[in-house]
Design a protein around this nucleic acid. Structure first.
Length: 486
RNA sequence: GCUCGUAUAGUGUAGUGGCCCAUCAUGAAGGACUCUCAUUCCUUCGACCCGGGUUCAAAUCCCGGUACGAGCACCA
């Protein structure tokens, strides 16, 4: 019986997963560990992870590290990626699979493919094959007997062939509409003597390596993956893999795609490029405040929760989008404000000497919305305070939580303790509560050090603060803050 | 060039033939609260790419156009 929806309601969260059964959903996130995770990777983790949670299923973290030449893996990434994924998800991925550990399984399937004659060893050059592909003509190697293919396969494995000599292809119809799919390559030879795999246990152990389309297809089947959600740049990959699945008699998982995301303020950052720049000394490391890596963002004080909400809100549409950073910041503000103690940080501090009657100390709330968090005490017996140069120039100002003053040179004459006009309210510090401090800002590709006076505090490293009238910041140490955003 | 895909307010997003003179968020502007240019709350602004067609009825289906993107690597 068809049930008519009662009322159109705005859908919350992610779109429904097709053909999903509670408890039986298996998803995966499969990065190349050629560097730590970046902002873009977060989408893959968050979306797949959310679905896994929602359907009581599993999330596999898979290292697709089958290339040792073009985008070779980075050893530290094997440690760092699982940690970053856990930070972002709030749970550990249920399974971790490393493709380079699974080469024997891929060989086994390659041999099945050759034995069952839906694959062949092709000895044509890349150029030559391109001709065949565009002209829809069959490559001469395509008619190899199984015996010959097995013999050639052995030569690939034992080193008789060198890179470029031979590749294993999957047989498809050569008149497929989409040229990209015609007899696509599944495994190739890499010079692992010159370019060993960075994992010592793998090193130069294998010469023949699967390409992504083959490795990923076989592994998804072996792991029982039910749903694949990935970028739409991999759409043709799905089509290639579906052809392979048909040969094997397997059923391809449900797939969903997302489009490209650009962050307006960041240009194009690629992992490979960042790696080069870091190695060239342009950045201090993967956690550099200027970098759109997960560690970089985390360092700046962007929370996992903000990142999750951000990606869920963007959803799984195939549109190519450009998002301003302010969207992420808005999520971050929601994530941290309620727990962020208020603190004063005075930029370009000017010393003022108080003249006139006033209390010896005053107290202000740690958080205006949460009086229970207590107060901050400003000692005024020293009669000296710090305020920002820009504010002091206005002459008639109000020191927040204290009193109106009138500034003349270094003298601040204390006026009304109560508020009785609309003069600007500024943040300030009493000299005895202030320490020399530095605020680090990532700005236009530079890291700017802003020296000033900061309110003394005992907050541990990593605490998110709100520096009054400036924005949010993260505690690095007793005298250093990193500016997060305003 | 061939193939595939996408097109809803400034930016994202909901919407799968009638509930849509279109949702929510963000943004901008204004206001309330507040001894922060914060938080919270309120108000306002603002969109269905274009042209045909199908239908009693189209943002939703079909065709064409346009724009943008992706794949066509012995990268992932």
């Amino acid at each position: 019986m068809l049930e008519k929806r009662e009322k159109k309601e705005r859908r919350e969260g992610l779109p429904e997963l097709k053909n999903a059964t509670k408890g039986k959903v298996v998803l995966r996130f499969a990065p190349n560990p050629n560097g730590p995770l970046s902002f873009g990777h977060a989408r893959g983790i968050v979306i797949n992870g959310k679905y896994a949670e929602e359907w009581d299923g599993e999330l596999i973290l898979r290292f697709d590290d089958t290339d040792t030449v073009v985008k070779p893996p980075l050893p530290v990434a094997y440690q760092q990626i699982p940690e970053e994924a856990e930070w972002l998800l709030g749970f550990k991925p249920h399974r971790i699979v490393i493709a380079s550990d699974r080469i024997p399984q891929y060989y086994e399937h390659a041999e099945m493919m050759l034995q069952r004659d839906f694959g062949y060893v092709c000895q044509c050059s890349g150029e030559a094959f391109k001709e065949f592909r565009v002209s829809k003509t069959e490559c001469p190697c395509r008619v190899n007997t199984v015996e010959l293919n097995m013999e050639l396969w052995t030569k690939m494995l034992d080193g008789t062939f060198v890179p470029g000599d031979a590749v294993v292809r999957v047989k498809t119809a050569m008149d497929l509409k989409n040229p990209a799919l015609r007899d696509w390559p599944a495994l190739r030879i890499q010079n692992t003597a010159e370019h060993p795999h960075p994992r010592p246990e793998i090193g130069s152990k294998y010469r023949v390596w699967p390409l992504l389309d083959f490795q990923s297809a076989v592994e998804d089947h072996l792991q029982g993956v039910t749903h694949i959600i990935r970028g739409k740049d991999l759409m043709d990959s799905t089509r290639k893999q579906t052809l392979l699945y048909a040969h094997f008699g397997w059923t391809y998982p449900e797939t969903m795609y997302w489009g490209r995301v650009k962050v307006h303020e960041w240009g194009g950052f690629s992992t490979s490029q960042m790696r080069r720049d870091i190695e060239a000394g342009l950045f201090s490391g993967w956690d550099d405040l200027r970098l759109p890596t997960l560690t970089g963002l985390r360092n700046r004080g962007i929370t996992a929760e903000a990142l999750r909400n951000f990606w869920v809100e963007l959803g799984v549409t195939q549109k190519d989008i450009s998002v301003p950073l302010s969207t992420l910041y808005s999520h971050n503000t929601k994530s941290i404000d309620d727990d962020a103690p208020r603190l004063a940080f005075v930029r370009n501090p000017k010393k003022l000497v108080l003249v006139g009657e006033h209390e010896d100390s005053i107290e202000v709330d740690v958080h205006p919305n949460h009086p229970k968090l207590g107060t901050r005490k400003f000692d005024l017996t020293g009669k000296t305070v710090w305020a920002e140069e820009e504010d002091v120039e206005k002459a008639e100002i109000r020191l927040k939580g204290f009193a109106d003053i009138e500034v003349s040179g270094k003298i601040a004459t204390v006026g009304s303790i109560g508020r009785n006009d609309r003069r600007p309210i500024v943040h300030w510090l009493s000299e005895s509560n202030a320490i020399d401090a530095t605020l680090l800002l990532a700005e236009d590709g530079d890291i700017v050090r802003l020296d000033g006076k900061m309110e003394k505090h005992n907050y541990p490293e990593g605490t998110m603060l709100q520096i009054e009238r400036i924005g949010y910041a993260k505690v690095v140490d007793a005298s250093t803050l990193v500016f997060t955003h305003s």
